[in-house]
Computed example of a mutant assay.
Amino acid sequence: MAKKPAPDETAAPLVPRAGGVDALREAAAGCRACELWERGTQTVFGAGPQGARIVFVGEQPGNEEDLAGAPFVGPSGKLLDQGLEAAGIDRSLAYVTNVVKHFKWEPRGKRRIHAKPNAREIAACRPWLDAELAAVKPLAVVCLGATAAQALLGRGFRVTQSRGELLERTGLAPWVMATVHPSSVLRAPDDESRRRERARFFEDLAKLAPLVRR
């Protein structure tokens, strides 16, 4: 049985120093830096070209991503793809990943319901994200939702206050933007709200188009 991680352990010792994204993905498959591996079906690492212009960072894989072993393949991923297409951004220019690489869930009948990762789990997984950004070297990083934004931009960052703004944060990438997670658009309470939130989300993504065309 695998040893339980100590509170101060992270994935840092597992991160390979060379080999790029492929080497990172292979190493992350056996990550046990926090307890989430015990519940997730598998590690869900980032996907996309190593030379991607934009890295999109979400919170964690969902149920469909956990089963498929790939990020943003469910409804949220489809909405993201639609937004990129509407903005005229080639999907092949994007790399998608999450702050946490295992699905955290709670049982509800026969369903597995998303549970928000805690600070310990986010910190344990952070070395993988840092290594992905170092390997890809994107022009822009887009934080999808509050968990991703606060993990990368600080706990005091508020998406509601700075949504859609292109920020110069050279520690991460030349440009950083925070917007809502596409799952929040899909959870809007009625059709009109979903149409409105979808339009706002697409407007945020459209601001990235001039960057990738340079």
Results as ranks from 00 to 15, higher is better:
Ile54Asn: 02
Gly109Phe: 07
Phe157Val: 08
Val73Asp: 01
Cys143Ser: 09
Val141His: 04
Gln161Met: 12
Ile54Asp: 03
Asp190Gln: 07
Arg25Phe: 12
Gly83Trp: 00
Ala27Phe: 11
Arg120Gln: 13
Phe202Thr: 06
Pro189Arg: 14
Ala18Thr: 13
Gly77Thr: 00
Ala124Ile: 06
Gly62Ile: 10
Arg17Val: 15
Ala134Asp: 15
Glu165Lys: 14
Ala188Val: 06
Gly164Gln: 02
Asp191Glu: 15
Leu80Gly: 01
Phe45Lys: 03
Glu26Leu: 15
Gly77Ser: 03
Ala2Val: 13
His114Ile: 09
Ala6His: 08
Gly19Leu: 13
Arg187Phe: 14
Ile122Gly: 04
Gly88His: 00
Asp66Leu: 05
Phe201Asn: 02
Glu26Asp: 13
Gly46Arg: 03
Leu129Met: 02
Leu133Ser: 10
Glu35Asn: 14
Gly19Phe: 12
Pro13Trp: 10
Val57Arg: 03
Gly171Trp: 05
Ala33Arg: 11
Pro189Ser: 14
Ala199Phe: 05
Leu129Asn: 03
Gly154His: 11
Val96Ile: 06
Lys101Pro: 02
Gly51Phe: 02
Leu129Thr: 00
Arg111Val: 12
Arg169Lys: 15
Ala124Ser: 03
Pro210Tyr: 00
Gln50Ala: 11
Ala12Phe: 11
Ala199Leu: 10
Thr43Asp: 07
Pro127Gln: 09
Gly30Glu: 13
Ala151Trp: 08
Arg91Val: 01
Val15Lys: 10
Arg163Leu: 07
Trp105Gly: 00
Leu153Trp: 13
Ala12Asn: 06
Thr160Gly: 12
Glu197His: 09
Thr41Cys: 05
Leu167Cys: 04
Leu153Arg: 12
Val73Ile: 10
Val141Asn: 04
Ile122His: 03
Cys125Trp: 09
Lys104Thr: 05
Pro127Cys: 08
Ser183Phe: 14
Gly19Val: 12
Cys34Asp: 15
Pro61Asn: 08
Pro117Glu: 06
Val57Ala: 05
Ala115Ile: 09
Val73Lys: 00
Asp130Gly: 06
Ala119Asp: 12
Thr43Gln: 09
Ala70Tyr: 06
Leu79Arg: 04
Gly109Ser: 03
Gly48Ala: 07
Val73Asn: 00
Phe56Val: 10
Gln60Leu: 12
Asp204Trp: 03
Val142Tyr: 02
Gly62Glu: 07
Val141Arg: 06
Ala33Gly: 14
Met177Phe: 11
Ala70Ile: 08
Leu172Ala: 10
Ala123Ser: 06
Ala2Asp: 13
Leu36Ala: 13
Ala146Asp: 14
Gly109Cys: 04
Phe56Glu: 05
Asp8Trp: 13
Ala115Asp: 04
Leu79Met: 08
Val99His: 01
Ala135Gly: 08
Arg169Trp: 14
Pro75Ser: 14
Leu167Gln: 08
Leu80Pro: 01
Ala68Phe: 01
Leu93Thr: 01
Gln161Tyr: 10
Lys101Met: 09
Lys207Asp: 00
Phe201Lys: 02
Ala68Asn: 01
Pro61Trp: 12
Leu36Asp: 09
Glu132Pro: 05
Gly164Ile: 00
Leu14Met: 15
Val55Glu: 04
Ala70Ser: 09
Gln82Leu: 09
Ala11Asn: 01
Ala119Leu: 11
Ser184Pro: 04
Thr43Ile: 11
Pro71Val: 06
Lys4His: 13
Leu79Ile: 07
Phe72Thr: 01
Arg112Pro: 01
Val96Trp: 02
Gly20Trp: 10
Pro16Met: 12
Lys3Asp: 13
Ala146Ser: 15
